[in-house]
């Protein structure tokens, strides 16, 4: 399945690196990244590929929850289908 990881918060050093490390540790492949910094607000969206047999979404969430605390940002992991169904006809 594909999921979208969103990271929003105040910009600081190493957010991208910490999020990608959490992904790599969970065996999650990053397909696409879209990142912007507006003033000092950091917003990043990642399209990732989760191989269901290897990685549980729970595990990834746990790891990202730690990153969320460390970086003082808000991180969500949601199935790509939600956005497709809500915003595409």
């Amino acid at each position: 399945m594909n999921a979208i990881i969103s990271v929003v918060g105040k910009d600081s050093v190493g957010i991208l690196s910490k999020v990608s490390c959490a992904c790599a540790d969970s065996g999650v492949n990053i397909v696409e990244v879209n990142q912007s910094v507006l003033r000092d607000m950091f917003a990043m969206l990642m399209l990732v590929e989760l191989n269901k047999d290897d990685v549980a979404i729970d595990e990834l969430r746990e790891k990202l929850a730690k990153v969320e605390k460390e970086t003082n940002t808000k991180i969500h992991v949601m199935h790509e289908d939600i956005f497709n169904s809500m915003h595409r006809i």
């Binding site: 979208i4 969103s6 879209n34 917003a43 969206l45 399209l47 808000k74 790509e80 956005f83 809500m86």
Partner: peptide, 16 residues
């Protein structure tokens, strides 16, 4: 890829 605005809108709907 999906539009950033759409993704943030959905997250905001759930969060807030």
């Amino acid at each position: 890829m999906l539009e950033t605005r759409d993704i943030l809108e959905t997250i905001n709907m759930i969060d807030n």
